[in-house]
Nucleic acid binder design. Structure first.
Length: 821
RNA sequence: GCCGCGGUGCUGGAAUUGGUUUACAGGAGCGACUUAAAAUCGCUUGGGAAUUUUCCCAUGUGGGUUCGAGUCCCACCCGCGGCACCA
């Protein structure tokens, strides 16, 4: 029989599923929790790029099982979010219906690859039994005062008619539709992720993530150390607080710039300047972030007419307004030190501000000098080095009440509400009665009558836990209202409810949660997916978590990965989970590009559907090709031609293993190669070097092919076991053909014998002055003296040395001998 | 501008971490089988000179360290990803 994947793959997939091969057992033995990012089931189905991480981690999971681990390798569906809703708007098909259909298709595709997921733990974020707990987590955040409502200008996508988080805005445009983002001021629920900023940085030390992931998260959080300095306004009690990391340049501050949105602006505008300033502010507010960015280099500003005192030397410095000061960072106020900051230099040049050198080392007549140096023109601090000056000036400010040491973060709190239908309802109601009570009678409120969140957000009352989930009502119309309200707002019998605190009339929150809400914690739910009493039982959480190996895309580094770490830390604080970090190890896969080198996309018509490859070559070929195509963490171009090569390899394995030579013992070369292969798989799988594993297999198959007559049954069996995590169907089939009644996946993972790997004979390279001139076959254990003698006896070597004097000999056992002449 | 990653044949890439550069595949060429094609199986395939023996040059560019550099150091060029008026 020839290799025919169509005849064997479905058979074994059904067999494995029927016999529940891959179901993890709670609390039994040493565990491995292996996780892939659960897919968003879109209407387009899987493409070969999605499969790459699933296939890779499937191989890992399969190997770990054979090594005796109790492996949890689960899958589920992240199904809330915009695409389903946009699709519903277009077609009138309810997101629920479309989602179910998409899931069915995804499931069929995933199953056709022979992946060893534990389907008994399948979850779906849009299932009320699941999102009950997504809502529960929100309630806990709310109770602890980590959720608050704020009226803020948010990123507004005019096309999707939705507010977006900073993370969803990609260079000024909507991550989903590409429209230019504007600003809209709306009341939004915010999560205090900033309260966890330090821990999110510090705890990266505890986990094994790629450096680039750590670096990106740290940069995103953007912690900087500096000082807050107080500038007193001339002729008024007003005080302006600025943030700087360069306290040493304080004497060079020749102006203050406030963001147009700064709360003190109004009081600082003098009558003479009013018209100009107001016009500027109106213009600035109109600009979107994108426009601001585009004209980034061109600084603009306007003088308010007011002055303040530089605390260092009591000089009067003008107060300006300029939109290069960012409202949401450092209090939206900066001290302008033109001599030592590029931006301030531009600004000062444009508006004729004083440029005063206070750190020596550059030529400020040409450009700003931003490096550290020695202080000049800085009163008592003149002569100090920058580093020392920063400390001393900060201390001086503190002593004299002009400022204090502080830190700033780029990270902002997380905008957690969306004005859309297809998401988890936020489990809060607004009660006018309670709002009045909290606002007016704070002192009379009994202890524990309201939780922290309710006091922080007067009128917003938590839906009691026992009433969860707040189910998403069925609607006919999904269109965003465009007014900033979600489509839920028009369903009056859902919106109108009773206040759980006072029983009075109340209205439900009609915003829903962002699509990240369900994915924040899904991997916890896998530990105990059916539990309707708790998020998951503490016992199971303790057993399974943290995740041992989590693979996902780089694009989630500052999104899902950061968010879910934050949520996990919160759950740790309220003692739901027992360690501070959710993922012990993180790896990232590179994306698979289409054959034309572009991203695979329906609009380019260049998508490769795994169905086609499975149909033509079989799942095992697809699996091995995706591992072989290139380094796992690198983007790679798909090449259907290359798929053929893998198919040929599997055919070779098939032929080799379905006919046994009858040799009683493998020849030493084959045996050694087999043990080397074993070692290589062990090492390279851990290092995610899947491509070299496959090429090692190919080399081994080629070797066996050469030594056809000397390959025994034992060798073939071991080869099949080693290959089984990568090509499960083919190996299972051949395994049975060899007469085994039990599955190959019940065998133990083989251990290589280090003694057998040792080469007895090696090629010793002979170099003259570092250049290869000859090679000899020698005993691996040959001594330097012997090697030298042997090398010098060679004709070629003699010719190269001739009458020259040997100055030095370098001998590396098993590798080379080098004569320096 | 800053942070991170990378640059090796015609192509995807390998190189035990300082020790035989180009493994493994794809593609191309030649040959075998075949009426023929596909498939399959052999052989060839970095460049140049010489074709029995061989020699020189090649890992983005230019320097350096070293007996020896794709690998380490310095400077530069190019590509990719992220951040970006963050004070």
């Amino acid at each position: 029989m020839n290799y025919n994947p169509q005849k064997i793959e479905l058979k074994w997939q059904r067999y494995w599923e029927k016999n529940k091969f891959y179901q993890a057992k709670d609390g039994q033995g040493k565990k491995q929790y292996i996780l892939i990012e659960f897919p968003y089931p879109s209407g387009e189905g899987l493409h070969v790029g999605h499969c790459r991480p699933y296939i890779a981690l499937d191989a890992v999971a399969r190997k770990k099982r054979m090594e005796g681990y109790n492996v949890l390798f689960p899958i589920g569906w992240d199904a809330f979010g915009l695409p389903a809703e946009n699709y519903a708007i277009k077609t009138g098909i309810h997101p629920q219906v479309a989602t179910e259909k998409n899931i069915a298709n995804y499931k069929r595709q995933v199953k056709s690859l022979g992946l060893s997921f534990d389907w008994s733990r399948e979850i779906n974020t849009t299932d009320p039994k699941y999102y009950k707990w997504t809502q529960w987590i929100f309630l806990k955040l709310f109770e602890k005062g980590l959720a608050y409502q704020a009226k803020i200008p948010i990123n507004w996508c005019p096309s999707c008619k939705i507010g977006l988080a900073n993370e969803e805005v990609v260079s000024g445009a909507c991550e989903r539709c590409g429209a230019i983002i504007g600003k809209k001021t709306l009341k939004q629920w915010m999560l205090k992720i900033t309260a966890y900023a330090d821990r999110l940085i510090d705890d990266l030390k505890k986990v094994n993530y790629p450096d680039r992931v750590k670096a990106q998260q740290i940069e995103w959080i953007g912690k900087s150390y500096g000082a807050e300095i107080v500038f007193k306004v001339v002729g008024s009690p007003g005080k302006i607080k600025v943030f700087t990391t360069r306290t040493d340049t304080l004497f060079g501050a020749t102006a203050i710039v406030l963001a147009p949105e700064h709360p003190l602006v109004e009081g600082l505008i003098t009558a003479k300047n009013r018209e100009k300033v107001e016009k500027y502010i109106v213009e600035a507010k109109k600009k979107s972030d994108f426009e601001r960015e585009k004209i980034e280099k061109e600084k603009t500003g306007v003088f308010t007419g007011s002055y303040c005192f530089n605390p260092a030397n009591n000089e009067k410095v003008p107060i300006w307004i300029g939109d290069y000061a960012i409202a949401t960072y450092g209090g939206g106020a900066i001290m302008v030190v033109p001599a030592h900051d590029y931006r301030d230099y531009d600004f000062a040049k444009k508006y004729g501000l004083k440029i005063k050198e206070v750190v020596s080392g550059g030529d400020i007549s040409k450009e700003a000098f931003v490096n550290y140096g020695r202080l000049v023109n800085s009163g008592q601090f003149t002569g100090l080095k920058s580093k020392e000056a920063i400390e001393k000036i900060t201390k001086w400010l503190e002593v004299n009440g002009f400022g204090r040491k502080t830190v700033q973060y780029k990270l902002r709190d997380w905008v957690f509400s969306r004005q859309h239908y297809w998401g988890e309802p936020i489990p809060l109601v607004f009660c006018e009665n309670c709002a009045v009570k909290i606002k007016n009678q704070k002192s009379k409120i009994k202890n524990n009558e309201f939780n922290e969140g309710e006091l922080l957000n007067p009128g917003w009352i938590a839906v009691p836990e026992k009433n969860l989930p707040v189910e998403l009502p069925f609607v006919e119309k999904y269109q965003p209202t465009g007014t900033g309200q979600s489509p839920l707002a028009v369903i009056s019998d859902w919106v109108n409810t009773k206040c759980p605190k006072c029983g009075g009339d109340a209205k439900r929150e009609t915003d829903t949660m962002p699509n990240w809400a369900g994915s924040n914690w899904y991997y916890i739910r896998y530990c105990d997916p059916e539990n309707d009493k708790e998020l998951a039982s503490p016992k199971k959480i303790r057993y399974w978590l943290p995740v041992d190996w989590y693979n996902g895309g780089m694009e989630h580094t500052t999104l899902h990965l950061l968010y879910s770490r934050f949520i996990y830390k919160f759950l740790f604080d309220i003692k739901i989970v027992s360690q501070p970090e959710p993922y012990q190890r993180r790896t990232s896969h590179g994306i698979v590009l289409a054959e034309d080198g572009r991203k695979m996309s329906k609009s380019f018509g260049n998508v490769i559907n795994p169905d086609d490859i499975v149909q033509k070559y079989g799942a095992d070929t697809l699996r091995i090709y995706e591992m072989f195509m290139g380094p796992f963490d690198q983007a790679i171009v798909w090449n259907t031609q290359g798929v053929k090569g893998v198919y040929r390899f599997l055919e070779k394995v098939w032929k080799l293993c379905s006919k046994i030579s009858g040799a009683a013992k493998a020849c030493p070369d084959v045996l050694r190669a087999l043990h080397k292969l074993n070692k290589k798989i062990d090492n390279d799988l851990e290092a995610t070097k899947f491509n070299t594993i496959i090429s090692a297999f190919m080399e081994f198959a080629n070797l066996c092919h050469e030594h056809k007559a000397e390959v025994d049954k034992k060798t073939i069996e071991k080869t099949l076991i080693l290959l089984s995590p990568f090509a499960p169907h083919l190996t299972e089939e051949l395994w049975r053909k060899l007469g085994h009644s039990k599955s190959i996946f019940f065998t133990k993972w083989p251990k290589y014998d280090p003694k057998l790997i040792k080469e007895e004979i090696t090629t010793l390279v002979i170099q003259i002055n570092g250049k290869v001139r000859d090679k000899i076959e020698v005993d691996a254990g040959i001594s330097e003296t012997k090697a030298k003698k042997l090398a010098l006896s060679r004709e070629k070597v003699k010719n190269w040395i001739l009458d020259k004097e040997i100055k030095k000999i370098i001998f590396i056992p098993k590798k080379l001998i080098n004569f320096v002449v």
